[in-house]
Computed example of a mutant assay.
Amino acid sequence: MRFMVMVKATADSEAGVMPSADEFAAMGAFNERLVQAGVMEAGEGLHPSARGARVAFSGSSRQVINGPFPITNELVAGFWIWNCASLQEAIEWVRQCPNPMRTDSEIEIRPIYSAEDFGDALTPELREQEERLRQQVQTRNG
């Protein structure tokens, strides 16, 4: 199963406070363990929401909302994509993670849908398209 593992933002991360060299080293060592175990597929930190935007949809209209966004603890400061046998395995990995922030913090774990989860709504043609696009992305990214 694939999971998106999201590091929740804090006031510091929203202010653009960067990790120390020791904090980078601790997270780098953890990431190395994830890669060596075949768990980590991707992982990145995100700039503060002040540098981002949201697009709100209502029927056919679109409204752009520029950051910063007000509710810090609902924002994502970084993420990983992991491949684990179960939610419990992903939880065990997160429990081994160094605290990603200098203050109290939270990491959210969410399963990623797979083609099988969509049943008959994902027709054979749509499955073929999805696989073709996935392969194109993988080829482009090397």
Score class of each variant (00 low, 15 high):
M1A: 10
R2S: 06
F3L: 03
M4Y: 11
M4E: 05
T10N: 04
D12G: 06
D12M: 07
E14I: 01
E14K: 02
G16D: 03
V17W: 13
P19M: 08
S20Y: 01
S20E: 05
A21P: 00
A21R: 15
E23Y: 03
F24M: 13
A26M: 00
A26Y: 07
E32A: 05
E32S: 02
R33Q: 08
L34R: 01
V35E: 15
A37E: 10
G38A: 07
G38N: 06
G38F: 09
V39P: 09
M40Q: 12
E41F: 11
E41M: 11
A42H: 02
G43A: 04
E44I: 12
L46M: 04
L46G: 03
L46Y: 14
L46K: 12
P48Y: 10
A50P: 13
A50Y: 09
R51Q: 15
R54M: 14
R54L: 07
V55F: 09
V55T: 05
V55A: 04
F57W: 03
S58Y: 03
S58V: 02
G59E: 04
S60L: 12
S60G: 14
R62K: 14
Q63K: 13
I65A: 04
I65P: 04
G67R: 04
P70A: 09
P70L: 14
I71C: 12
G78S: 06
G78C: 00
W80M: 00
W80N: 11
W80S: 03
I81H: 09
W82Y: 11
N83S: 14
C84E: 06
C84V: 07
S86P: 08
L87K: 00
I91W: 01
V94R: 05
V94L: 09
R95F: 04
R95Q: 10
N99R: 10
R102F: 12
T103F: 04
I107N: 14
E108V: 05
I109Y: 04
R110K: 01
R110W: 08
P111G: 02
P111F: 11
I112T: 11
S114F: 04
E116Q: 08
E116K: 09
G119C: 08
D120K: 02
D120M: 11
A121Y: 02
L122C: 08
T123F: 06
E125V: 12
E125Y: 10
L126W: 14
L126C: 00
E128P: 13
E128F: 04
Q129K: 15
E130K: 13
E131P: 12
E131K: 13
E131I: 15
L133H: 12
Q135E: 12
Q136I: 02
T139W: 05
T139N: 13
T139G: 09
T139H: 13
G142V: 11
